[in-house]
Design a protein around this nucleic acid. Structure first.
Lengths: 128, 128
DNA sequence: CGACCGTACTACGGCAGACGTACTACGGCA
DNA sequence: TGCCGTAGTACGTCTGCCGTAGTACGGTCG
C-alpha cells in the first residue's frame, strides 16, 4: 500500500502523465490510477478533485463539460500546451528526486562510496 | 534544484538511511545531504531539526548529547532497533512508489531504461 | 579589537496539500 | 425498497516544509 505522503508532490506529474494520452475525467482517472497501481494506490476523491482543479487553475489543464450517456454532466480534462511543458519539467524533476532518494534508499546499488568512512570531515573525530 | 515538495514524505527515509551508517548530528546530516546531492538539495535547518525530533519521538532515533571539542553540546542521533525496521519498511515503500511514478513518468512504449544516465538499477518486481 | 563567518541548535508562525466525513444525484439490480 | 456504482462538491483538520529570527561560541581578517 502506497501512502499519500509518499506520492505527495508527484500527484501532479501522475495526473498530467495520465492525461497525456488523451482527455479523461476525474472519476475515470481515479480508476485508471487504481488499476495501473494494481490496487496499491487509491487516490481519495477529495485529493483528486482538488488536484485537477488546482492544475486547471494553473492553466495546465483545460476543462470542458460534456454529457455522458446517462445525461449527467461529466467534466473532461485535457492537457494544455503549458501542461505538456510542465509535464516535461516534472518528469525531469522526478528523475532528479529519484536519483537522490535512490542514493540513500538503495544501498544495493554498488559500492556506495566509503560506507564507514563517510565522514569526510576533518574535525569530525568521534570521541569515545 | 530539487524542491522540498518533491522529497516530502521521503525525508524520513533519507535521514534513517544516512544514520544507518553510524550516528550523526543534525548539522552534519545537513552537510552530508548537501554534499551527496551535489548541491542539488539543501534541507532547511528547521525542516531537519523538526524531522529528527519527530523521528526521535517516534522511537526511531536515539538521541544523546555529547560535548564537542569546543565544549559545546552536540546532539548525536542513532538508529534504534525500531528505526532499522522502519528503514526497511520505508525502503520497500519507496520502491513501490518509485515503480508507480515511473510507470507514468517514463513515456510509455519507448521505455527509457536508466541507461548511463541513471546508474541505479531498475530491477524491481512490478506486480502485474 | 571588533565585525563577521561557520558551527549547532531553538522558537514561532504560515501555508499548501492530502485526508475524513458527508452530502447531492441518478440509474441499475436484487 | 434499498444498496451499489458513477460523478462530483463542500468543509474542516492535520501534517510537514518553510521563512524569519534569535542564541551562543570560536576563529579569522582587517
Amino acid at each position: 500500500m502506497i501512502g499519500a505522503d509518499a506520492i505527495r508532490g508527484h500527484i501532479d506529474l501522475i495526473l498530467l502523465a495520465i492525461l497525456e494520452h488523451g482527455r479523461s475525467y476525474a472519476y475515470e482517472i481515479s480508476k485508471t490510477l487504481e488499476r495501473r497501481s494494481s490496487g496499491e494506490y487509491t487516490i481519495k476523491q477529495t485529493t483528486l478533485y482538488t488536484a485537477v482543479k488546482r492544475l486547471q487553475a494553473q492553466g495546465l489543464l483545460d476543462a470542458h463539460e460534456e454529457l455522458s450517456e446517462t445525461g449527467k454532466p461529466r467534466t473532461y480534462y485535457a492537457l494544455t500546451v503549458e501542461g505538456h511543458e510542465q509535464l516535461a519539467l516534472k518528469r525531469d524533476e522526478w528523475r532528479s528526486t529519484r536519483a537522490l532518494v535512490d542514493q540513500f534508499a538503495v544501498p544495493t546499488g554498488d559500492a556506495q562510496p566509503s560506507s564507514a568512512a563517510q565522514p569526510s570531515h576533518e574535525q569530525d573525530q568521534v570521541p569515545s
